[in-house]
Design a protein around this nucleic acid. Structure first.
Length: 159
DNA sequence: GCCAACGTTGGC
DNA sequence: GCCAACGTTGGC
């Protein structure tokens, strides 16, 4: 595949599953992003992500939703083994090893941040069209525009 | 191909 | 726990 310039992503995870502190404590500070069962999110991992792309590690479904830190894509896409595990809640009986339906990537910690609350993001006029903030957004993986990325990069430490 | 029913997400 | 929004499923 042709190498693209670095791209930016937001990936949601429940901190009760793997919080940023859990990530920091893991071997290689890396986590396999298993369990995605949404075609749009899968397609982004399979077709668009490149090793080295940067990621906002986002805590969702918790008391303080927000961006918990910076991570990066640390592997090419590969089949998600949980789709073949009949005991897994992510088991997909329609998927075969010849034609795996679900893929995943590895995500590695770059830097823990002081949490950037969702509430703060919503207050920034420059982020008005950030996809995370769009009404009814439920996708667990979202692309982030460079302009939004850089805005947060400049402002997050000045809050 | 339509669309109602259902399950899930995720903020509050 | 509530509920709006959305994706998926399956009957027709």
């Amino acid at each position: 595949m042709k190498k693209k310039p670095v791209q930016y992503w937001l990936m949601k995870i429940e901190p009760s599953d793997v919080s940023i502190d859990d990530l920091a404590a893991r071997p290689k500070q890396s986590v396999p992003w298993y369990g995605v069962r949404n075609y749009q999110a899968r397609n982004m991992m399979r077709d668009d992500m490149q090793v080295g792309d940067l990621v906002w590690y986002y805590h969702s479904s918790c008391a303080e939703p927000g961006i918990a830190g910076l991570a990066k894509i640390s592997s090419a896409p590969y089949p998600d083994p949980s789709q073949f595990d009949a005991k897994s809640k992510y088991y997909d009986p329609k998927s075969t090893s010849d034609a795996p339906r679900w893929v995943m990537v590895d995500v590695q910690l770059v830097e823990r941040w002081q949490l950037i609350p969702l509430k703060w993001l919503r207050e920034q006029a420059a982020l008005a069209d950030l996809r995370l903030l769009a009404r009814g957004n439920r996708l667990s993986i979202l692309p982030v525009d460079a302009k939004h990325w850089h805005f947060v990069e400049q402002r997050r430490v000045l809050r």
